[in-house]
Design a binder for these strands. Sequence first.
RNA 1: GAGCCUAUGGCGUAGUCUGGUGGCGCAAUUCGUUUACACCGAAUAGGUCCCCGGUUCAAAUCCGGGUGGGCUCACCA
Length: 794
Amino acid sequence: MANNYDFKESEKKWSKYWEEEGIYDFDGQSDKETYSIDTPPPTVSGAMHLGHAFSYSHEDFVARYQRMKQKNVFYPFGTDDNGLPTERLIEKLKNVRSTEVDRTEFVKLCQDTVAGIRPNFIQDWKNIGMSCDFNKSYSTIDNHCIRTSQLLFMDLHKKGLAYQKSAPTMWCVKCQTAIAQAELEDEELNSTFNDIIFKVGTENLIIATTRPELIPACVCIYVHPDDFRYKQIVGKKAKIPLFHYEVPIFADESVEKEKGSGAMMICSYGDKYDVEAITKRSLEPRVVIEKNGVLNHFAAKYKGMNIKDARRAILDDLEKEKLLVNKKPIQHVVNVHDKCGTEIEFLSSKQWFVKILENKKKLIKSADKIKWHPEFMKTRYVNWVEALEWDWCISRQRAYGVPFPIWYCKKCGKEMLADIKQLPVFPLENEPTKKCSCGSDKFIAEQDVMDTWATSSLSPQIVCNFIEDEEYNINFGKTYPMSLRPQAHDIIRTWAFYTIARGLYHHNKEPWSNIMISGHVLDPKGKKMSKSKGNVVEPQKVIQTYGADALRFWAANASLGKDLSYKEEDIKTALRTITKLWNASNFAFLHLTDFKNKKMELELIDKGILSKFNDIIKECTDAFDNYEYSKSKMLTEIFFWSQLCDNYLEITKDRLYNPDKRGVESRKSAQYVLYQLLLGVTKLFAPIMPYISEEIYQTHFVKSEKEKSIHISKWPKYDKKLKDEIAEKTWDKFVEILSFVRQEKAKNKLSLTAEVKLIITEEDNLLLSECLQDLKAVCKAKDIDVGEKMKVEF
RNA sequence: GAGCCUAUGGCGUAGUCUGGUGGCGCAAUUCGUUUACACCGAAUAGGUCCCCGGUUCAAAUCCGGGUGGGCUCACCA
C-alpha cells in the first residue's frame, strides 16, 4: 500500500465526478436555507492570473463551508465580456481598430472571438476547484443580461434616476469615449512648466502652464483678488500670444497665489477646475481638442495636429517669438484612463448619467446595513462616495456593449423607450413598436452602448433572475438579496459601489448582507506583480506542478483583506500537508479494516484528545462563520500535525498492533477515536483542499458515511457532551512526559527507539494510572517507576 | 495634503477586539532513520514584540505622540 497521492489524477477524477453527480447544482425547490453568492464575473482575457486564483479560492472556501453547513448554496458563475475591455482584447488579438472597421462586423468579430476563448478561460476556474454551479453561468453580453440591463435602465429612466445631458465630461481621446470618475487612474508623468508671456496693454503678464496646446482654448485669466501684483489688471483684457485674441481678466478667490505666477489661464477644458470656472462665469467655450485628440480650427495654424505635436509646435513658436521666458521640468500626477493609460481630456458631449450625487447620504448609509469582512474596507467605500464629484456616466461611444433601449423622434426629438416585450432590443436594427406622441413614426436610434459596469452592477439581478427568464429557472424572491458578495479591494469604488446603488435604486434594498474583500498577491519581495516587471507567476503552472489543493492551501494563509506574497516554499509546505494527510489516513485505515462505527466506552486518553478536538471544531466553526477561513485552516493544521500525527498516532500504535496483549477493547477505543479524528480533520480541511479531502473520503469513509461526496457531508458539530476536563488534563500530562522523554533521548543522542527507564512523580502516576501501558509503549520504557521528580534513565 | 491599513527571531505570519510566562511555518544547527510518511521524526538555538511617553500590580495587547512601509483619494493653472 501507501501509493503516493497523485494529485493530477485525483483532480481530474473528482472534478468529473462532481460535475456528473451535480454536487454543486443549486436546488431551486429545496426548503433548506439558501446561501447565495454574487460571484465576480471575471473579464474575459487571456487567462486567469494568480490574483484571481487567490481571491476566488477565498470565496470558494466560504461556499464549501456553507454547503457543508447544509445550506442550499446558490453559486453561479459568469464572465464579463462586453464593453471596452473586450473591445481592446479583440483589437489586440485580431489586430484591428474598432473605429476603422464596420460596426456590425466588429461586433460579430467580438462575439465570435469571445465565444471561442470563453470555455478555455472558464476552465481555469474549474481547475482551481471552484464549486460553482457552472450550469448557471452567464455572460454579460448574452440575451438574458442584455434584457436585464435594458429593463433596469428603463426602470432608472422611469424613476428619473437616469438622464441625458450635454456637458463637459471626462473623455479618452484614444478610446474615443466618455468615461466615468471611477475609471481614472493616477500616473506620475514628466512634464515642463512653461512661463509664457501674455500681454495686457503693453505690460507683460506671465502665465505658467504645463499645457501650452490649450492656449487657443483660453477663455479668460484668473488672478487672486488680494494679489497686489495683479490688482490693477483685473477687469482689463489680456491678449493671447500667437493667437491674437483677447480674453477678460477676473479675480477669483479660488486661485492660489503661490502657484506658478499666481495668474492662470482658464481653458476649455484643461481640467475640472476649468469646467467649473467657465460654467460659473457663463463664458463661451473654445473647445480646441476634438474627440479623436486632434486640434480644430480654434488652433489656427496648428489645426489637425494631435495634442503632443501641437504642444511641441506651439512651444517652438513661443520660443521664436520670445514669449517663452522659462521652461522648468517637473514631475506631476495626472489622471489617465485606466484601460489605456491615456491622459484624459474634458470635452463637451451628450451623455447618459445615473444620478449619484443627490443620493450620497443614502448610499453611505447602505454601507452600514452590510457586514463588511474585514470591517475597515467599509471606510474605503465611504471615503469614495463622500469624495465623488460627478454623477455616473454610463454611455460609451463604442461599438460592443449593451445598447441603450432608446430612440429619439426625428420630428420632435422626444425620447422613445423600447417596449418591454421587445427586449433584448438593438435600436440600430429594430424600430419602436409605436408612434411618437407627436404622430411621427420616424426615429433616430441611440448609437451609444452602456459601459460594462452598467451591466455588471446588476450581477445580483442577473443571476437571481429578476427578469424571470423561463430557461433560467431561478426564483428572484428566494435568492435576492444575496448572502455574499466576494471581491477584491480594487473594485470597491466600481463594482461594489455601483451594485449597491442599483440595489437601492431598483429595490430599495442592499443587494447582499455580507461582503468579503480579498487582498492582492505580491511577489516574494512584497512588490506588485506586473508583466513589465517580469515577476508574474502563472497559476496554471503552479497547478501543474503542485496541484490546485496546494495553491488553495497557500491562498488560505492570508486572512481577508490582507495581501500575500507568493513564495514557492509555501506551496511546497502545502504539498507536504497534503501528502501527510494522505499517509496518515492510509496508515489509520490499515488498522480500521475491522472497524465498526459504534459508540462505546473510551479510554481516558482517547476521551482527552477527542475533547480537545471538539474545541477545535468549535473554534473553526466560529472562525468560518466570521469568514476567517485562514484561522480555521491554521487551527486544523496545527491540530493535525502536532496532536494527531506526532502524538496520537504514535501513542495508539501499541494498542492497534498488539490487541492480543493490550486487549480488544482498547484497540476498539483507539479505532473509534482515530476514525472520528481523521474524518473530522478531513472535513475541516475540505473547504480549503477539496481534492485530497474527497480522495480520502471516497477511499476510506464513503462506505460508512452516507453522503456521496465529502462536500455535501455535514460540517463537524461541536458536542457539549464530549467535553471532559479530566481527560484533557490527562492527555496534556501524557504529552508533556512524552516530550520530556524525547528531549532526553535527543540530548543523549539516542534513537527514539532506545529503551529507557522512566521515573515519574507520584502525582503524575495517579493521573496517568489508566494509561501507563500506552506511556510505557510509546516511550519505549522498560519500566515506569515513581520518584521525586520526572527522570529518564538509560 | 487627507483617509485607511501595517510594523512581532534571518524571512513569512498568529496573538492585539477581551492586558496575565509571545505561538506557528520556512530557513539554520544537532541527533535519529522507529512496524504511515525522508514529501520523515525528535530536539536546539535565535525576539529591547518600530520609537517615546501614559494608564495598570501587570502592556506586543489599552491610551497619547512620533517614525518607517503599503494602499486609496486629492493635488494637474
